[in-house]
Nucleic acid binder design. Structure first.
Lengths: 149, 149
DNA sequence: TAAGACCTTCGAGTGCACTCCAGGCAAGCG
DNA sequence: CGCTTGCCTGGAGTGCACTCGAAGGTCTTA
């Protein structure tokens, strides 16, 4: 259970509410709470990382069971999915924490949140352009090696 | 001289062979050797990083002056430019070192080099797709904030 | 009721990619 | 000649994003 799991193997295991890939968002609302290991299966993050996100203020407060265990809800998983998206844009965790703070502060921060997202959007566009550039270079080199082989 | 410099300020300074952005590759072949600070101006890397790249085997041997100072040539700067491209694909430095080793080993490694570049190419395509995905999410959220503001 | 899986906390450790420092040499200049 | 600037080396330090360990509580199944 380190990183990869055969996501479509058995469809009724204890942590399989969320792991089948065919429907991209298979989180049912019937029982809107998941253990940390179910959240792990959903998000691809480790339990350590999920707890760490909470410690540093990147999670908007996760419910607990009567015995103190974390119970993730659909909105938490949605948030984590969004965080994952931000993560692969290269955004530093500190900036994501900042955004999470703005969310906690309520509607008065809509403007600032929008600015943050728009600046991120610009970064993403830049990054895409750079990658296209890189792609061109790679194709040239690959063509060279293909010709020389 | 930490990171940014007004690249188009004076066009005849001691390290300005390479810093004007308008032509993308303004490296003249007239005097095909540059000091480390000129290489810094060209590549955007720091001198520390350039020396470190050499230590770890990421550079294909840089010439020295009679007093032991590094003299970068155009092919070195081309290589660094390529490395920079690989870097922003997210390729680990260890993999780039591996590629550099293959280059040092000569033509017999063309096949392996091509494989490495093709696998990198696939990664880049994946990354671009992910970024487009992220862009869609950002646009949705930005639209929401724009409507709510 | 007992085993074993799973959860909790806090703090320390890891890996990567730089980044910096101390101490020293060499060249150009007033 | 001394001063400044630029470069050299090896090794230590930094920041980020996890990642792990230890010690212990809880839940489930036999």
């Amino acid at each position: 259970m380190t990183q990869t799991m055969p996501a479509g193997a058995t469809a009724a295991g204890p942590a399989d509410r969320c792991s089948a890939p065919p429907p991209p968002h298979p989180r049912p609302d019937g029982q809107d709470h998941y253990t940390i290991s179910e959240a792990v299966a959903c998000t691809g993050l480790t339990a350590h990382t999920l707890r760490w996100y909470e410690r540093i203020g990147l999670m908007p407060h996760v419910d607990r069971s009567h015995t103190g265990q974390r119970r993730y809800r659909n909105r938490d998983l949605d948030w984590l999915e969004f965080v994952n998206k931000l993560r692969l844009t290269g955004m530093p965790v500190a900036d994501m924490v900042r955004y999470a703070e703005l969310v906690r502060e309520g509607e008065s921060t809509y403007g600032e949140r929008r600015e943050l997202l728009e600046s991120t959007r610009r970064d993403v566009l830049t990054r895409i352009a750079e990658l296209h550039d890189t792609l061109a270079v790679l194709d040239r080199k690959i063509g060279f090696y293909a010709a020389g082989a």
